[in-house]
Amino acid sequence: MHGPDIQWYVVLSALLFTTGALGVMLRRNPLIILLSVEIMLNSANLLLIAMSRLHGGEDGQIFAISVMAVAASEVVVGLGLIVAMGRRNVDLDVDKLRTLRG
């Protein structure tokens, strides 16, 4: 089966990564930021799978599964933090969390 060459997958992955990065840098709601981080992780996964296909070995896919597991753990922790914020009636706005200002 042919189809697009691997470089198209790489470009797509880059576009997804950029979109996720823009979301992290430009949105204030922590939930949206977390979702954008997910997008970035998925773009990395896509790249790994594509490279695995290029080289013919499963290592990339193994790595991708590990990434998925880690992403899940990170989402657990992140959502826990957001729930804690919400319970304390802190505004869901990362710009309000400025105590570490220099």
């Binding site: 189809g3 797509l12 996964n45 296909r53 599964i65 998925m68």
Partner: peptide
């Protein structure tokens, strides 16, 4: 897209886990 790259298990895992 994973399916197109012959990563069947990963595709399934993606849907289930994510």
């Amino acid at each position: 897209l994973y399916l197109l790259l012959s990563g069947e298990f990963v595709a399934a895992g993606q849907v289930l886990v994510y």
